[in-house]
């Protein structure tokens, strides 16, 4: 190869690949609107993006997997944590995690209530971006919810008692299913409180709760209480201010509408087996 040829190689290949890159960029612009739901990008989302930037969030967290690796990824956080939880968390993160136990903690960003609402709206918009299905399975902030742990625990319960009804098995599936997301916030291991309280022994506990004087809901059976806590989480609050604020539970309220009646029945059956 002569110097002339090598120069030709450099110029021609660089020109060709630059052109292809530019053409694909132009084409991508015709798709961004649809892929990112640009129509839902209202003033609040854009204001939330400014809150995200001006607080330098990206230099601890990742978003769409990009950023720093010192704090959890937040791409799908609004699908794992309710708005009430996120708002309470952002107003005082140190209430939720212990620096002694987790070795690191989020400094209080000192956001106004409007800023908190804006940044949550922004994160919610991000969580809807069609990004090729990433992450392939939910990235949890905390807790030890190995898929296998749940199964072993549940079958251990089953073998010591009578065989659980078929619906309970379906409920167990639903509980750990990523789409339903229960296991993202609730562990069934004793003492493991995630964003929601541990549900270890909740079947037994439900029986005691409905007869308790402090019970504020309207159910009169254990199963009724379990159903109520799925569809109307604020009817009876447990666990203090880690899980609720101003009489409102942090648990999302969409399960009553997003799950159909059979699914809720199955979940109640499954939870009743946890003793």
């Amino acid at each position: 190869m002569t110097k002339r040829q090598s120069r030709l190689f450099f110029l021609v290949s660089t020109a060709c690949f630059s052109l292809v890159f530019l053409a694909l960029t132009l084409h991508s612009h015709t798709r961004f609107g649809e892929l990112t739901n640009a129509d839902k990008m209202d003033a609040q989302v854009i204001a939330g993006k400014d809150v995200w930037h001006s607080n330098n969030c990206i230099n601890c967290h990742t978003l769409l997997g990009e950023g720093a690796y010192y704090a959890p990824d937040l791409t799908k956080i609004t699908q794992q944590r309710g708005e009430a939880y996120l708002a309470a968390f952002l107003s005082n993160p140190s209430k939720f995690y212990s620096e002694q136990r987790h070795r690191r903690i989020m400094p209080n960003p000192e956001l106004s209530e409007t800023e908190i609402d804006d940044v949550i709206a922004f994160l919610d918009w991000v969580s809807q971006i069609d990004n090729q299905g990433w992450p392939p399975r939910p990235i949890l902030v905390s807790g030890a919810t190995f898929p296998g742990t749940n199964t072993q625990k549940a079958s251990g319960v089953a073998s010591s008692e009578q065989a659980p009804p078929a619906a309970a098995a379906a409920g167990e599936q639903l509980f750990s299913d990523a789409a339903t997301g229960c296991s993202g916030c609730h562990s069934i291991a004793p003492g493991v409180d995630l964003a929601g309280p541990s549900l270890a022994g909740v079947g037994e506990r439900a029986r005691r709760t409905v007869t308790d004087d402090g019970y504020t809901g309207s159910a009169d059976t254990a199963a009724g209480y379990l159903r109520e806590s799925i569809v109307a989480p604020s009817a009876h609050l447990v666990g203090g201010d880690r899980f609720s604020a101003n009489g409102t539970s942090f648990m999302p309220t969409n399960y009553g509408t997003d799950l159909d009646a059979d699914q809720i029945d199955a979940l109640v059956d499954y939870l009743s087996t946890l003793k």
Binding site: S6, F9, F10, S13, T14, F17, S18, V20, F21, H27, S28, R31, F32, L35, T36, L64, G65, E66, I129, D130, N131, Q132, W134, P135
Partner: peptide, 22 residues
């Protein structure tokens, strides 16, 4: 440099995978 650009320009795509692109 020709090889760097040949791979590098379109290689930008490896940052795009999960960000909401086609």
């Amino acid at each position: 440099v020709g090889l760097v650009f040949m791979a590098g320009i379109l290689g930008t795509a490896h940052h795009y995978y999960w960000t909401g692109v086609p």
